[in-house]
Design a protein around this nucleic acid. Structure first.
Lengths: 257, 257
DNA sequence: GCCGCAAATTTTGCATGCCAAAACAACCAA
DNA sequence: TTGGTTGTTTTGGCATGCAAAATTTGCGGC
């Protein structure tokens, strides 16, 4: 009933966050289908396509100046990444995980990072560990400046680097995929609350365990670190967020009971 | 240069294994694209499409009596499931994970099952646990009859049931996907060696931990159980399997050095 | 005979047009 | 308001055409 814009905290900085994703597509001459998938992926992360929003393929294909063929193929890819869901004969809607689903995702992500840490403790080169330590210091700098965006990006970068050090490509890919699925949620969580001090302490402990190459401890600390993300998210978002689409219909949510 | 058929252990029973996958597609009125994806998925698991084999879309679309459009979309889906890999301008080849990659996959699968077990210990209903125990007895029956196929299927079913009891859909899906990626390898491993006695003992311990609802113990036992799969696979397959395609060219393998 | 290079063929990637079926919206009648 | 019917929009799919890339083929030189 109020005329206030929905989710005002999304208007600004989110768009800047994507630039570290750009690095990922080192794939130079990607087929158009892949390019389209990347574009849509970024549109989702940038919130240009809002969760629960329907994607009309003819319209979007005109906007992107491509034909329906590659667009439809791109949508199939994104469905596989669970960034959208494709309802038969009803087209695509941007994924909008319910709080319970976010919890599930974070649990899996937690397990993946724990495995990543365990392997990284074993396989990381000294250089990689030093680089992670360096990123940690940069993150401290952002913390000092209260630059939440830089903090968030470095945070992501550190976790990604740890998993990357596991040398397990399947793990790296899956971790990245799950990360993308909760990206927006974590971004919001970071922007609002954060318990920064606590998070910084945990990070310090994580790096220490990695430097000591203590896989079990590292795995545990990564796990509980992400557990905190869930608690934060729950505390901040769970009640405050209306789970309805702009037009008033419930967007893909299952009944509350 | 011997004229013996390659991988003779695949000629027979593998085709029967797929029928428990059919259950999965309860999705009644699936669009053609999804049906095609399912068909190709089964063809891959049945070894009708052999690892490393190239998929020519015109040819396959004629065989399946569909046009290239839904076939191409299906291939995009399967690429997301990592069952095939799509090389730009060079089409699709059936995934053929190198031994190292199989190891990676089993590590992730192991972590996923561990999480599944931990959650299942907490959330499974008594009925689910009873059903799993029942499946275990059925598996013992197959063991007694030395019916490796039935044993394998029940084994898969039990692990799937444990993960399903976690109530974490994202975990269930991801577990299923990773399982599919190593399905053939595990089937082969099961057919050859197996250390049946050892595996049976481990299974007994797993069920016991589940019945005691001891999440940590269950997680550990599931982990080490899968660890054994890797050891078995390595012992059986690692050396014996030539990593070349039928035409003599190395199939998608990266250099050994 | 073997190697390298150019031409011919195949195959993929994408666009366009078209159609049927399903979903959605609008409208009218009871 | 409810219910059903009709018309419109949108998706799912097919067929065709074409350019670019890749593969194969063929040829000439060594």
């Amino acid at each position: 009933m109020m005329s206030a814009p929905e989710s005002p905290e999304f208007q600004g900085p989110l768009e800047e966050v994507i630039d570290d994703r750009q690095e990922d597509l080192k794939t130079a001459r990607l087929p158009l289908t892949g390019q389209v998938a990347t574009i849509i992926r970024d549109m989702i992360i940038q919130d240009k396509l809002k969760p629960g929003e329907r994607i009309r393929e003819r319209q979007l294909s005109q906007e992107l100046k491509v034909s329906r063929t590659p667009l439809r193929e791109a949508l199939k890819i994104l469905e596989g990444e669970k960034l959208i869901s494709l309802l038969p004969n009803r087209g695509a809607v941007v994924a909008d995980p319910a709080p319970d689903e976010v919890k599930d995702l974070l649990q899996v992500l937690s397990a993946l990072e724990a495995l990543g840490g365990r392997l990284a403790a074993e396989k990381a080169t000294d250089e990689e560990i030093c680089e992670i330590r360096a990123l940690h210091f940069e993150m401290l700098a952002a913390y000092s400046r209260k630059d939440r965006l830089a903090y968030f990006k470095l945070n992501q970068k550190i976790h990604k680097a740890i998993v990357a050090a596991s040398r397990n490509q399947a793990l790296i890919d899956t971790h990245a995929q799950f990360n993308a699925r909760v990206y927006r949620v974590r971004y919001r969580s970071n922007q609002r609350n954060a318990m920064w001090h606590e998070a910084i302490r945990q990070h310090e402990d994580i790096i220490t365990a990695l430097e000591a190459r203590d896989g079990d401890v590292l795995a545990n600390r990564l796990s509980s670190h992400l557990g905190n993300t869930w608690e934060k998210f729950q505390a901040d978002d769970y009640v405050s967020r209306p789970r309805t689409a702009p037009d008033g219909t419930t967007a893909g949510g299952r009944p509350e009971s």
